[in-house]
């Protein structure tokens, strides 16, 4: 078991984390390239930058955006806060980064981390519940939409059990292994699934606006490409 755990915490983690970083970097690079490409060709280069910035910030910090679907919005918001704060600011994780790369930042108290961890698991279950029991949402959902919330909950549930060995009915090493491997799996999945929104989110408002800015003569260029220039209306 120790060998497996060492593998999960060593090469498997390094691979998944590098995959995550490179994958996200690819998204950023592609988006930046596309934005530059579209803007360079556009006939109209005036963008409502103030409005775009405002919309982007409103959605990045969506506390004011809860009116429609209030309970869903609130669950989603709490879920996101928890899953962002705990992995980054848990004392145990901070210590790992300090040991591995010599980087260090303040940690949150373990009691707070416990509460947020439980909230993360509860909200993940609620999100899945809302997806399953709301007719509209269910009819839209793909496999990844059902699978991701429980998958995200796994590292949090196992992490909680590791912090409280007295309550853990399973073997500590096994729990540890599942904890690390489920996180590794999520790192790999992030650039490949809708989880990529963690990096694409800030660009979506800009992208939606830019898509309305076409090159001059785009219509006739399409007509030429399709051999329809002379065609009657």
């Amino acid at each position: 078991m120790d060998a497996w755990l060492d593998w999960a915490r060593g090469p498997a983690f390094v691979f998944s984390f590098v995959f995550l970083l490179l994958g996200l970097l690819r998204h950023v690079a592609l988006t930046a390239w596309e934005v530059a490409h579209v803007w360079r060709r556009a006939g109209d280069r005036k963008l409502p930058l103030g409005k775009l910035l405002r919309a982007t910030l409103l959605w990045l910090v969506p506390f004011t955006r809860l009116r429609h679907r209030f309970w869903f919005g609130l669950t989603s918001l709490v879920f996101h806060v928890c899953i962002l704060v705990v992995p980054v600011f848990l004392a145990g994780h901070v210590a790992l980064w300090a040991r591995g790369l010599g980087l260090s930042w303040p940690a949150i108290p373990n009691a707070v981390a416990d509460a947020l961890t439980l909230l993360a698991v509860v909200t993940a279950v609620l999100l899945l519940g809302q997806r399953v029991f709301s007719r509209a949402t269910r009819s839209l959902s793909r496999v990844q939409d059902f699978a991701l919330p429980p998958l995200v909950a796994v590292p949090f549930a196992t992490g909680f059990l590791m912090m409280h060995p007295g309550w853990n009915p399973f073997d500590f090493q096994a729990t540890f292994f599942v904890h690390v491997m489920s996180a590794n799996l999520l790192f790999v999945l992030t650039p490949l699934t809708k989880l990529s929104h963690m990096i694409l989110m800030p660009s979506t408002q800009l992208v939606a606006e830019l898509a309305w800015h076409w090159p001059v003569d785009s219509g006739s260029a399409v007509g030429r490409a399709l051999g329809k220039e002379g065609e009657p209306v």
Binding site: H37, T137, S141, K194, V207, A208, L210, A211
Partner: peptide
């Protein structure tokens, strides 16, 4: 550019 982003991030 929009289709590419929407095809990737759509959260349904």
């Amino acid at each position: 550019i929009a289709l590419d982003a929407y095809a990737r991030v759509g959260a349904k």
